[in-house]
Amino acid sequence: MKEFICTVCPRGCHLKVDENTLAVTGNSCARGVEYGRNEAVNPMRTLTSTIAIEGGIHRRLPVRTDRPIPKSKIFECMEIIHQCKEKSPVKAGQVIVENIAGTGANLIATRNM
């Protein structure tokens, strides 16, 4: 059994998911079933962080993955993010790292600087 808090709506039902059958209990509506299964099988997160930038109005440039990545890849991506350095000007949406850590997601800038 794995336990999760459903985050689809503010009620926050405490879900229990059977790893073998993927049966979900504790949900108050059908959306909780889908959420619980995804969390049990392959939880995905959008990663947001900052990288170093030279010549901008600030010293850090905010970035994010352009789609959710597997939760298990977060720290591997952070290691790459720590190595990144850009020079101003950068445009919002500009790709900083393609296919970061083999996740299929690109790391993009989230503002102009």
Partner: peptide
């Protein structure tokens, strides 16, 4: 810099700066 802004207004999850 985290995402979660604009779900009601734009129907997508933006970061604060976006």
């Amino acid at each position: 810099i985290h995402n979660g802004f604009g779900l009601h207004r734009f129907g997508e999850e933006l970061t604060g700066p976006e």
